[in-house]
Amino acid sequence: MLLVYCPYCKVERAETEFSCRGEAHIARPSDPSQTSDEDWVHYLYMRSNTKGIYAERWRHIHGCGRFFNAVRDTVSDNFLKFYKAGEPMPDLEALAKEAGK
């Protein structure tokens, strides 16, 4: 069971308090009517499913209820960073280097 840090509550809690909501930074296109079929399908279905350093969404569903983002190494399951929704995606390569990957 993972340990997850909620950047809103500023606490580390067991995974059972949270739900993982898939890849982060998939923004809904701002003008869907001007979005091509291909881009829309990309937004709907295509995910990078990275083996390695991956930014994903979490929700503190049994806590504050807030959505936030986390960078996780999908191989080791180690988290490299937690940050609030709306904050920019961190430099994953730099994080990976820092973690010695």
Partner: peptide, 13 residues
């Protein structure tokens, strides 16, 4: 409810 929270918090804050 989760869908509403999701759009509110992340798409239309």
């Amino acid at each position: 409810f989760a869908t509403m929270e999701d759009y509110l918090q992340t798409e239309w804050p």
